[in-house]
Every structure is written in structure tokens, then in C-alpha cells.
Simulated scan of single mutants.
Amino acid sequence: MTPILLDQSAALCDRLAATLEAIVISDRWVAHHRGCDRPSRWQQGLMQTAQACATGEPLTAQVWQPHFHRLGEPAAVLINALPYLWLKADAHSHHRATVEGWLTDLQLPPAEAKACKDLFLLLCGEMRHATPGRHRSPVAPAFNWRFSGEPEPELGQALALVAQSQGQMAVALKVAAQRGWGSATIALVGLLVGLTGGRASLGAKLRQRWLIDYSDPNAGTPDADPWHLLDAHHLEAIATELHHRWAGLGAYSTLPEPAFPLGIRV
């Protein structure tokens, strides 16, 4: 690779790590503010799809259709589909037909399928603009990509909030909570902040409190944190493994043991 391509690849890996961190931070934040009143199925599902994609398992409809159908809402489906969509994304959307075929095979409801197509296009757009040092507005991605028509409403609302908050994670989370959005939709907001702004957009205080120094007050109870076996090191390793496979280099073997403590249960 040329130096600029190496820099861009490193930037993409950081952006993916920031996206995963933002999902965890957002979910822990909302659990704290709502007394853990949030379903845990989609959290476990993300680790399942991430593990499968990182180890090279294709998310075939025969195996994964029940998994995605159980999630039941566009935001949860988007978060669970993120690892697969990332592996298929590139700056020119070359694998768009493959993604659309996969969604057809999954037989998702129209809103969920369209949301996944829109997120895929957003990922491709980010890969066109991830070169370090390139000056751009942190909120530009919210409206500049060409979706298939208007973005799916839930994704569109999340994108609009990221734009309105100028990509500031703390502001976006507070507004989303005030609007009464569900835990998966709030985590989707975090996903978009991390994706479009990288780690710098998450805020040092949020990362320190909800990721680096997080201690689960409900450990050992039914309300235990669904991410309790993950830390920043685990998320970094997952992102590195996914990014290495995206780059066509096969397994990178950085995953700690147990890398994916939730396991695959489909």
C-alpha cells in the first residue's frame, strides 16, 4: 500500500473501533438513566454477528434468518447487521447487489431491509472520506449520501439528531433520551456518532466512565450489564479482526480469550 492508503486503512479501523465503543457506551448510559429497563437480545446479537464475521463465517440466511427476525425493530437489526455490512462496504459500493441479495434472502420486513441498505450506503460514503487530515464537517454525512429515496424513518431521525447535535455524543444521547427513544435506537445514535466522527467524537469523560472504568452495579443479577465481559481491549481486538478481514488479509488473530464471551446462539 502507498502511505496514504495505509493512513486511510488505519483511519477506517479507528472509525470501526469508535463505532463499537459508541454502541456500548450508549447502551450503558441509557441503562443508567432508565434503571436497566432495556432488552438485551440485540446486545448479545451484535457480539454473535461480530464473532461470525471476524472468523469468516458467512451470515447465510439459512442459519441467520431466525436471528434477525427475532430482533423485531429496525435499529436492532441495523446494529446486528453492522459487521456484515462493514465487510461488504467499499468506497464505490461494489458489493451493493450482494448486500441486497443477502437482505432478500433474510426476508426482512421492508423497513428493516431498507434501513440496512441505507446504512450500507452510509458506510461506503464514510470509506470515501476517512483519510486523516481531510477537512470536513462532522455532520456532513447526515444528509450528503444518496440513499435509496428518503432514509428509513428511524435511521433518518437518528442521522438528523447527530447533525443537530453537531456530532457531540453527550448532547445526542440526552436529546434521544428526552424524546423517549428505545435503547436500540439510542445505541444507533451512538453508532452514527462513532462512525462519522471517530473516537474523538465520543468524549473523554464518556469513554472513561462508561467504557474504561465502568463497573456494573447490577453484576450477578438479572439486570447485569450484557457487555460485562467486554472492555476497551476486547472491542479494539474485535475491530482489528473485522478490519483485517475486510482488507482481504484473513484472520489477524488478535482476539483475547474469551474474545466473544456471549458465543453464538442462533
Rank of each mutant, 00 (worst) to 15 (best):
Q8R: 15
L12D: 08
E21F: 13
A22Q: 03
V24L: 14
R38I: 02
Q43M: 12
Q44C: 06
T49Y: 08
A52K: 03
G56E: 04
T60K: 08
Q62L: 15
P66F: 07
F68P: 00
F68A: 00
L71Y: 09
L71D: 01
E73M: 11
P74F: 02
N80I: 09
N80L: 11
N80G: 08
A81F: 01
L85G: 03
G101A: 08
G101I: 05
G101C: 09
G101H: 14
A111P: 06
K117E: 13
L121T: 05
P132A: 10
G133N: 02
A142L: 08
L159I: 04
A170T: 08
A172Q: 04
A172W: 09
K174N: 13
G182R: 15
I186G: 02
V193C: 13
L202D: 01
K205F: 11
L206C: 12
R207N: 00
R209L: 12
L211V: 00
D213A: 14
D223V: 00
D225R: 04
H228N: 10
A232F: 02
H233S: 08
A237Y: 10
T240R: 14
R245D: 02
A247M: 12
L249D: 04
Y252T: 01
T254N: 14
L255K: 02
P256D: 07
E257G: 00
E257W: 15
